[in-house]
Write a protein that binds this DNA or RNA. Structure first.
Length: 152
DNA sequence: GCCAACGTTGGC
DNA sequence: GCCAACGTTGGC
């Protein structure tokens, strides 16, 4: 079992949208590192912090889980989609995604500002200056600290 | 809306 | 293969 953090702008897709949909395709990721995590390392059942970026406040909004094996991102093949990428061919897809399912919404977003104050999160990717990675692994010890107190 | 930090692109 | 220019991310 691995742990992850996935960023989404709530104006585009929020934890409430996921709660409503139950499950969603995590499409549109166009960063190789993020893709590699989804394609090669995510396993069904892995837990995910749903992170609101560019938000008021930015922070962890709840928990989701990986709902299946990775597969090619269909939006890369769709000329009309904003995430269309002519380089990605159906025979050799460039971009992959996983389905993500809703687990829980936290009563309150755990704001980045608060996360920064929590002891024991040294080395967490999210807190590294300039880390824009939208899909990133979370160490189990960091996961445990951040979920302490059952922040449901 | 600003801007620093990145990643990508493309000329050479 | 270098690196400047450009585009994007995301906190503030």
């Amino acid at each position: 079992m691995k742990y992850w953090l996935m960023k989404s702008e709530p104006d585009v897709y929020s934890i409430d949208d996921l709660a409503h949909d139950g499950k969603t395709m995590w499409d549109g990721v166009r960063n190789y590192q993020a893709r590699n995590f989804m394609r090669d390392q995510m396993q069904t059942g892995d837990l995910v912090f749903f992170y609101h970026s560019n938000a008021e406040p930015s922070g962890i909004a709840g928990i989701a889980k990986v709902a299946g094996k990775s597969y090619p991102d269909p939006t890369a093949f769709d000329k009309k989609d904003v995430h269309f990428d002519p380089k990605s061919k159906k025979e050799a897809p460039t971009w992959y995604l996983v389905d993500v399912a809703f687990v829980q919404k936290w009563k309150q977003v755990l704001a980045l500002e608060e996360i920064k104050k929590i002891k024991g999160l040294e080395g967490m990717l999210l807190l590294q200056k300039g880390s824009r990675l939208s899909v990133q692994p979370v160490l189990e010890k960091h996961w445990k600290i951040l979920t302490r107190g059952g922040r449901v």
